[in-house]
């Protein structure tokens, strides 16, 4: 008689099938489906409101499906110079993000080098800016004094480094083994070569995430442009959209025409369409960088 000693040690098999499990799985799916609905419905509602007739939206008739579909709201948004503003926004985003990444890497790398004697001092100095800022007027004066007013650089140079993002990059760089860098040094590589040929290529995941962070903040920013840009043809898209939305509401209050025209476009449809137009480009970019996203932002969060 042989005794199967292994059988006793084997963990109990997971019981597949069975009513309780099916109920559990069904409940899980149902719950997840509900959560998906809760998450997606606001976005869906925004889309259907933006393409519905304004009068129907106003009367609260749009909930599940669009009513009296019209593209009038989008026509209203896309008339005028919107393509110019879009081009400006793309330019500011691309150029701004490039400058951000280069500057952040150039700042982060020395702060990870143990051979850099003032490392701790500079790290402390940089960290201070996380908590304190000069405020609007001193910043305005600085931009004016440096002659950056009404130029693209006023939107790019003052915010060339985001301290928070730079610290994430620094943490990613610091997680690379010292031996790797030492061996490169032994092969005669200088710091720039090490940074651009070893450190940066090995930190692609983090940098992709930072590209996304920086790009989104450039794409969404309007405040700096509002303060520093005076020529209308240099405005980014967000200024135009924001003005379209907020001033439209204000003007309705101040100077209600009350012309009694049946309108296809209302404040609510305009608001919805504005949200779609301003978020769509970023939504399109997300899937391409998403695979880097989680691994990038988790850098340094777990030790060992």
């Amino acid at each position: 008689m042989t005794v199967n000693t292994h059988a006793a040690k084997r963990p109990a098999p997971i019981r597949e099938g069975g009513v309780s499990r099916s109920v559990f799985v069904a409940f899980n799916y149902f719950l997840l489906f509900l959560m998906m609905l809760v998450t997606l419905y606001p976005l869906y509602l925004t889309v259907i409101v933006s393409i519905s007739n304004g009068a129907n939206v106003m009367r609260g008739e749009v909930g599940i499906l669009p009513v009296n579909v019209t593209l009038e709201t989008y026509r209203n948004i896309f008339k005028g110079d919107i393509l110019l503003y879009m081009r400006n926004s793309v330019l500011y985003t691309v150029l701004g993000t490039f400058v951000n990444i280069v500057m952040s890497c150039l700042c982060a790398y020395p702060l990870t080098r143990k051979s850099f004697c003032a490392r701790k001092f500079y790290t402390a100095m940089v960290t201070v800016t996380l908590f304190f800022s000069g405020g609007m007027v001193p910043m305005y004066l600085a931009v004016n004094t440096f002659g950056l007013m009404d130029s693209i650089w006023a939107l790019i140079l003052p915010g060339a480094i985001s301290t928070y993002n730079m610290i994430i990059i620094r943490t990613a760089f610091a997680s690379l083994p010292d031996s790797l860098i030492e061996s490169a040094q032994l092969d005669g590589a200088n710091d720039l070569t090490i940074l651009f040929r070893i450190v940066i290529p090995l930190s692609k995941a983090t940098l992709s995430t930072m590209v996304l962070f920086y790009a989104v903040s450039h794409w969404n920013s309007y405040f700096d442009a509002m303060l520093y840009i005076r020529t209308k043809t240099k405005y980014p898209l967000q200024i135009h959209l924001r003005n379209l939305l907020v001033a439209g509401i204000a003007s309705e209050e101040l100077q209600a025409a009350g012309t009694g025209q049946a309108f296809a476009v209302t404040e609510r449809t305009m608001r919805a369409a504005t949200i779609i137009v301003s978020t769509l480009p970023i939504l399109i970019v997300y899937p391409f960088v998403q695979r880097y996203f989680v691994s990038g932002v988790m850098i340094g969060s777990v030790k060992g």
């Binding site: 007027v137 509002m226 005076r230 209308k232 200024i239 924001r242 907020v246 204000a250």
Partner: peptide, 21 residues
């Protein structure tokens, strides 16, 4: 005519007045 968007005209105006520009 310089015409910053009225949505945030207050901020622009305040910055310009405070910096005497």
């Amino acid at each position: 005519v310089e015409a910053p968007p009225s949505a945030n005209y207050n901020d622009t105006k305040t910055a310009r007045i405070n910096s005497n520009d």
